[in-house]
Write a protein that binds this DNA or RNA. Structure first.
Length: 604
RNA sequence: GGUGCGUUAGUUCAGUUGGUUAGAAUAUCGCCCUGUCACGGCGGAGGUCACGGGUUCGAGUCCCGUACGCACCGCCA
């Protein structure tokens, strides 16, 4: 062994012991004849001291020539420090070096290996193995390890079996784009990497495995974001003989277990919200409910058929605005806003800034209307010239406005405006400091619509996937009004992030056939893509349901960071490139020949 | 596919209305320093201002294009 102790373990109790440490040189501080060296390994930092008045000159001279990130071994005696450092656990002691061996020298690293590094993201990714030496980054991976470990501990205790499913599977054109892998032994044919083990976990239920989970890599060839990687990890689960509530309770239990074990946080029962309410009050299927600022509808003339079955349609068909006074509001079906409590003091410049924010092309609002209730109770708004004071007063009543409040109002088509208002609400929540990453507020979003209408192709698509069970109460609507059908699907949402989601699956062949029919699959097409599962269901399929959590996102939430990149040891950049190993890359002609593949690159 | 921001020393950034030799911090190197731990002091070295084109007497600065990075919209059953 190159070492007998680690750099994180020595304390006052060890004073007088001879120790052998090995690690990386964090920093060298020269004080004339006295030299301090900070030695770092995974477990901490320990100070070495070389004193010319005590040790031989050659040893001390060697220490002064150490560079950052040299790997060294040192043998010495633990001594209590003359001046202690309260900032580090080993700060009471130091090692009086007797022997120093340079095991490996280092070039000067391109950035400093410290928590507050001077390196940019790009450079850190290129030298990820250096970046990973930084305790901040390593901590996230330690957290990831512990979290995955606790997931296994919880699910094992609940009788779940971890089963591996294949990575080389069959491509399906529905859903996200597949990564494909050519098959040498089957020229012209391709495997796909799984977007998720969806069909396999359902087959495991048919096989009677009853409770399955897997912490598994999934692959989607779609454009990336801070919280999206081309390969990501799911905690993938499925259970038999259960209904929606059973699954929700099981995995609410898992989340509670994780928060208790890793953060010491205990939750009451997670609240549930219907998809329709999430849209109506927050404009999002993953609302951030750390703060209120719920939408207030001032006018809603949207047709009733726009709502799913059982939705709260109170207020539909009502408007606080008299007609013929403001053509903008007259011409739209939907006007709604949020109350930014205590923001009446916003300057013209600040409101203009918010207007610019909602008019950005990503959000796409035409403009922003505001109403201010001043501290003295007087009202001022950007629509004073269109409406009588009583109308402005009526608006304030809808918002339950108090002196000092600022109401921000958008209008347009309902769903579009809800999304815009959602962006504005989150922006205001950010500005007002309501989005504290150390505050966790979970909820389940339920009652998703089973189908989504696609304007482009003029047909319905499955919101979740084609195996999702409709709510049995809504089955009659499958024939009459598909848009109103609720599904038995559920998402676990926390702080505006979708951490996971799943559904009850269809186990009845007849109902499954009907679903394929409604989604525009011919029998042949359905058999071609999902034949295996359809056939399996002919041999006795148990009722089953499941869900999957995004492990990377769960870890980033626990770590209180926005990007999932620093929860992954070797992540990819915005373009899906690994800049460290330079992948993807072109391959040899010989490899292409063997696969019988010819490239046909677009010139441009 | 689209929008926005960015690209200047190893690194992180500043650089005014377009005008002399492009600066700071940090890292690095040298000298000094015996209780530092963000050590301190003095000194040195370090630049194809991303690339290509344009406007101009003159471009790091203005315009157009390209590349790359980040964030977002579309997309992600």
């Amino acid at each position: 062994m190159y070492r007998k102790q680690t750099c994180g373990e020595l304390r006052l109790a060890n004073v007088g012991q001879e120790v052998t440490l090995a690690g990386w040189v964090q920093r060298v501080r020269k004080m004339g004849g006295l030299t301090f060296v900070d030695l770092r390994d995974r477990y901490g930092i320990t100070q070495l001291v070389f004193d010319e008045s005590e040790a031989d000159a050659a040893l001390c001279d060697k220490a002064t020539h150490l560079g950052r990130e040299y790997v060294i071994q040192v043998i010495g005696v633990v001594r209590e420090r003359e001046s202690k450092n309260k900032n580090i656990p080993t700060g009471d002691v130091e090692i009086v070096a007797k022997e120093l061996n340079v095991i490996s020298v280092s070039e000067v690293p391109p950035f400093t290996i410290e928590d507050k590094t001077d390196g940019g993201d790009d450079l850190r990714m290129q030298y990820r193995y250096l970046d990973l030496r930084r305790p901040m980054v390593r901590k996230n991976l330690e957290l990831r390890h512990k979290l995955a470990f606790e997931v296994r501990r919880y699910l094992d205790a609940q009788n779940f079996l971890e089963v591996e499913t294949p990575m080389l599977i069959k491509s399906t054109p529905e859903g996200a784009r597949d990564f494909v892998v050519p098959s040498r032994m089957n020229p012209g044919q391709f495997y796909a990497l799984p977007q998720s083990p969806q069909q396999f976990k359902q087959l495991l239920m048919v096989a009677g495995f009853d409770r399955y989970f897997q912490i598994v890599k999934c692959f989607r060839d779609e454009d990336l974001r801070a919280d999206r990687q081309p390969e990501f990890t799911q905690i993938d689960c499925e259970m038999s003989f259960v209904e929606q509530d059973d699954v929700i309770e099981m995995f609410e239990g898992m989340m509670k277990h994780l928060f208790k074990e890793l953060k010491g946080i205990e939750f009451d029962k997670f609240p549930r919200m219907t998809w329709e309410d999430a849209m109506k009050y927050y404009g999002s299927d993953k609302p951030d409910v750390r703060f209120g600022m719920k939408f207030v509808e001032l006018k809603n003339m949207s047709p009733l058929r726009a709502y799913v079955q059982g939705a709260d349609t109170s207020g539909v068909g009502q408007s606080v605005f008299p007609e013929g006074q403001f053509t903008v509001f007259d011409s739209v079906p939907y006007v709604a806003g949020i109350n930014a409590k205590g923001c009446a003091g916003y300057t013209r410049k600040q409101i203009d800034g918010l207007t610019d924010f909602v008019k950005r092309s990503q959000i796409g609002a035409k403009g922003l209307i505001w109403v201010r209730k001043n501290d003295d109770g007087s009202l001022k708004s950007s629509i004073d010239k269109f409406y009588a004071p009583e109308v402005i007063e009526a608006i304030c009543q809808k918002f339950e406005a108090e002196p000092g409040d600022l109401m921000l109002i958008l209008c347009g088509e309902m769903r579009r405006t809800q999304k815009q208002l959602c962006a504005l609400r989150l922006e205001m929540g950010q500005r007002l400091g309501f989005r504290d990453p150390s505050v966790y507020v979970p909820l389940w979003v339920i009652d998703f619509p089973l189908f989504e209408w696609d304007e482009e192709t003029q047909r319905y698509y499955a919101t979740h996937h084609p195996f999702t069970s409709p709510n049995p109460d809504d089955v009659p609507l499958l024939d009459t009004d598909q848009g109103k059908v609720r599904s038995w699907a559920y998402d676990c949402v926390m702080n505006g992030v979708e951490l996971g989601g799943g559904s009850v699956r269809i186990h009845d062949s007849k109902l499954q056939e009907k679903m394929f029919e409604l989604l525009g699959f011919t029998e042949e097409k359905a058999m071609e893509q999902f034949g295996c599962l359809i056939n399996a269901f002919k041999y006795g399929a148990p009722p089953h349901a499941g869900l999957a959590f995004g492990l990377d996102r769960v870890v980033s939430m626990f770590a209180e960071i926005d990007s999932i990149r620093d929860t992954i040891a070797f992540p990819k950049n915005n373009q899906g490139r690994d800049v460290m190993i330079d992948a993807p890359c072109a391959i040899d002609q010989a490899q292409l020949d063997e696969l019988q593949i010819a490239l046909n690159l677009k010139e441009e």
